[in-house]
Design a protein around this nucleic acid. Structure first.
Length: 831
DNA sequence: GCTTAGGGTTAG
């Protein structure tokens, strides 16, 4: 059944969801069962190249007896590999690649600690699978699985120098090659659970692991030399990625976890975006594919083959959103739990709060500090120096060095109003940082690490020092190099630090006479071309930031330019409601099952009722709709027997039959017997069907009377006329949604309902029955709030908001906002 | 393909 209406949508959605999950499980179950059967019942393994052995069973079962297991350290090209097998855990599974008409898949397996000397480089070995085996492997094996391979040949590993793994690899192709998989995920932290409980934990892990790849993470005190692992940790020190003398960027982090081990991680990646996006000490990183080893007796983790990184804010209570440039990230509830555990562990442990940047107001001479700020202007001085003019909305208690900027070599304004000028700090950035500064644009939000506040003055070409008393002023330096994590970073627009910074700046703006335009021009106004809605009102009010709006005890109308951060309900059919304009009540549309139930009960009641004089009772064959189904209908016909002028009162039909009739006859009114009289059904269900449209009455405001509504002279007959004739207070269809808006300064929940039709350009009534209208709303919401998008990159909206007072549950009055007189204008994406 | 760096202040 295709989803045809918001009303029936819930049911449809659920059945789709259910079907989907059953299908996924069914495929898994079937394939697992088939494989188990084939590997156990015949006594001999069939010719399937990848065998999944019973899940949770220990390694060593169901593998042919004639295979001899050998340690990876024994692998070399001289051994005779026939009847030999190698066992290990899959620590990396590469993609299935089609090369020269043949499928290839590379994986790395690692021997488990009990079976080998893990300090050897040879503990992890590359496995190269070809042909059907590669395809089978891709489908049946996931990272973390333990497997045994046989029928391999030994080749030279071309990547041994790079990945520091086993110098030889195992090549699997042809009839003899075989992979036995022991699907055996490891619990997240085995030591936290008593051994006897492991089986139970394992079985739940197995059931979850069937849905998505599962990674295992090693605690930092449990690392084995030369092992390639995945780890979680809290960052205790970091250097921003910087250009190494080699070919890559290098970033250095020190991480810790509940074991209190502190380990240095070195990450070399050519692309900046592949580095962990650490913003401050206390951030949490998840590193995949790092190799543990010792360097001069110190423990180190080194980026290796299969490396990837996620970074999380470390503040307890903040949203757990991974920072990454990767398009496909495996991130599940267990990851969320790990992040939250590390956050609370670290916050309980550390004396200082995780946030460590210093506002300008707290800067004193000679200190080194980190600063979160906004770049206002950038001045090129010479090959080694760039001057950055920044602010953070606070005033330094020591006088800052002032300069006059040469407009010819300055990007951004070269002068500012006096109020603003008094907050601006000028920073000299040197060498590598001066090179980095080339990419900065005025307006960028920056975090600058290890700034140095030094008494003095600023001189140089393009700069005119603005004062004589050198020693009394502070100059901020970002010295060259990367020691102490020195460097800077552009902060993402939607980060909590940037929001806070913007609030500080906005608060300063409100306290002074600074014009809105000067401020907003820098950091609030997105390009005109990205604005996707238009105000249709004629209010003459200046746009405000959300922060200003919330501060100002608002009433009346306000204009804002905002982005959509989230919305409710996510399932759009739930946005459709019924509204009574008389008693102002909004109620839910009952679901299809509930309506059908009311009709079935009414249909089963067979009590007769006295005939109503204005109705012609007929026994008709409604063959068109119910295929030769004879039943009594009570028909009120005006003038000539013309279908459109008939009201058909039907008793004893199920909802399905009623819909079928309504598809052929206009104005179908369901009725029942009530104490010997004909009456309408409960007003909870539709009182009128007109084609696919259903109409509801307000049970509080209706005074129902089944009499002749006297519609002879009325043209055309519509639902309003019929409702009036029956004494029914007609309810309107309305769309009711809650939008969470955001701008540079804050976020705000607002409602969209009375003007929702204007906003979406569709009628709610049409949306109740028309797929087209629903699709349009869905497309608009997807356009404004794409499911996978970064909130900062979403389209902007010019909105007119009306503030009003509403009583909360506790009886207290609260300010609410409603979007009004605004139309969506952006073009929904059609691809 | 291999190296890079391997935390621990510029000296403007």
């Amino acid at each position: 059944m295709k989803s045809t209406g918001f009303i029936s949508g819930e049911q449809v959605h659920e059945s789709v969801d259910t079907d989907l999950s059953i299908r996924i499980i069914a495929v898994r179950v079937t394939s697992a069962r088939e494989k188990q059967t084939s590997s156990t019942s015949s006594g001999q393994l069939d010719n399937m190249p990848v065998h999944v052995l019973s899940e949770g069973a220990g390694p060593g079962t169901q593998v042919p007896n004639d295979l001899t297991r050998i340690p990876t350290s024994d692998i070399n090209p001289i051994i005779n590999p026939s009847n030999k097998a190698v066992q290990g855990k899959v620590v990396r599974k590469g993609p299935l690649v089609l090369a020269a008409d043949n499928f290839i898949l590379k994986a790395v397996i690692q021997e488990e600690e009990s079976q080998t000397d893990t300090s050897a480089q040879s503990a992890s070995i590359n496995v190269v699978l070809m042909g059907t085996l590669a395809k089978e492997f891709n489908l049946s094996v996931k990272q973390g699985d333990v497997l045994m391979v046989s029928g391999f040949t030994v080749g030279k590993s071309p990547t041994a120098n790079k990945d520091k793994l086993h110098p030889w690899n195992l090549q699997l192709s042809g009839d003899k090659a075989c992979v036995y998989v022991f699907s055996q995920p490891t619990p997240p932290d085995p030591r936290s659970q008593p051994a006897v409980k492991r089986n139970a934990a394992l079985s739940s892990q197995v059931s979850r692991a069937t849905k998505s790849p599962k990674y295992t993470y090693v605690r930092l005190d449990d690392l084995k030399a030369e092992s390639v692992v995945n780890v979680y940790g809290v960052v205790t020190f970091f250097k921003q990625p910087y250009k190494s003398r080699g070919t890559d960027f290098c970033s250095v982090l020190k991480i810790t976890d509940q074991s209190n081990e502190e380990i240095l991680c070195k990450i070399f990646c050519k692309k900046l975006e592949d580095h962990p996006k650490v913003l401050q000490v206390g951030d949490i990183v998840r590193l995949h594919g790092v190799k543990f080893h010792y360097f001069r007796d110190s423990k180190e983790l080194l980026k290796t083959f299969g490396f990837s990184a996620l970074t999380f804010d470390g503040v307890v209570g903040n949203p757990v959103e991974p920072r990454t440039s990767s398009q496909s990230v495996h991130f599940d509830e267990e990851d969320r739990r790990r992040v939250e555990e590390l956050r609370s562990w670290y916050s309980a442990k550390s004396v200082l709060p995780a946030v460590s940047t210093t506002p300008l107001s707290a800067v004193t001479p000679k200190v080194y500090f980190d600063l979160t700020c906004q770049l206002l202007a950038k001045t090129f001085i010479d090959n080694t120096r760039t001057l950055l003019s920044v602010w953070d909305g606070t005033r330094c208690s020591y006088p800052l060095a002032k300069v006059k900027l040469d407009p010819d070599v300055t990007e951004g304004p070269s002068s500012f109003c006096e109020e603003k000028e008094s907050l601006i700090a000028n920073i000299l950035v040197y060498d590598n940082h001066s090179v980095f500064a080339r990419q900065l644009k005025p307006g960028n939000f920056l975090r600058i690490y290890n700034l140095h506040a030094v008494p003095g003055s600023i001189t140089g070409p393009g700069i005119i020092s603005d004062h004589r008393e050198k020693e009394e002023h502070l100059v901020l330096y970002l010295h060259g190099g990367a020691t102490y994590g020195r460097g800077m970073q552009i902060l993402p627009e939607d980060s909590s630090d940037v929001r806070e910074l913007k609030r500080n700046i906005a608060a300063f703006q409100m306290d002074t006479s600074m014009s809105d335009s000067e401020m907003i021009d820098v950091w609030c106004t997105p390009p005109e071309s990205t604005v996707s809605s238009e105000r249709r009102c004629d209010h003459d009010v200046q746009p405000k930031t959300l922060f200003q709006l919330k501060q100002s005890k608002p009433s009346g109308v306000h204009h804002v330019r905002v982005q959509l951060r989230s919305y409710e309900p996510f399932r759009l059919y739930q946005a459709l409601k019924l509204y009574c304009s008389k008693c102002k009540t909004i109620r839910e549309i009952p679901d299809e099952e509930t309506i059908a139930d009311v009709f079935s009960k009414a249909a089963r009641s067979t009590q007769p009722h006295s005939p109503l004089p204005f109705l012609v009772s007929e026994r008709r064959s409604f063959w068109k709709c119910l295929s030769e189904y004879f039943f009594e209908a009570h028909i009120l016909t005006y003038f000539v027997p013309q279908r459109l002028r008939e009201l058909i009162f039907l008793r004893g039909l199920t909802l399905e039959e009623m819909c079928s009739m309504a598809s052929c006859y206009h104005n179908v009114i369901p009725v029942r017997s009530s104490r010997g009289d004909m009456a309408l059904l409960d007003l909870f269900v539709p009182f009128l069907f007109r084609g696919r449209r259903r109409y509801y009455g307000c049970d509080k405001c209706s005074e129902v009377r089944v009499t002749d509504p006297c519609l002879e002279d009325i043209e055309p007959i519509d639902e309003k006329i019929i409702a009036k004739g029956l004494g029914v207070q007609l309810m309107q269809f309305v769309l009711l949604m809650k939008f969470e808006l955001q701008d540079a300064t804050d976020s705000l929940d607002v409602f969209l309902w009375r003007d929702a039709e204007l906003f979406f350009g569709v009628s709610a009534e049409f949306a109740a029955v028309g797929q087209e209208a629903q699709d349009r709303i869905g497309q608009i919401m997807d356009f404004l709030c794409p499911p996978e998008s970064n909130p900062g990159e979403r389209p902007w909206l010019d909105l007119c908001l009306r503030a009003y007072q509403s009583e909360s549950n506790g009886g207290r009055s609260q300010t609410c906002f409603e979007i009004c007189q605004t139309t969506f204008t952006g073009r929904p994406s059609t691809d």
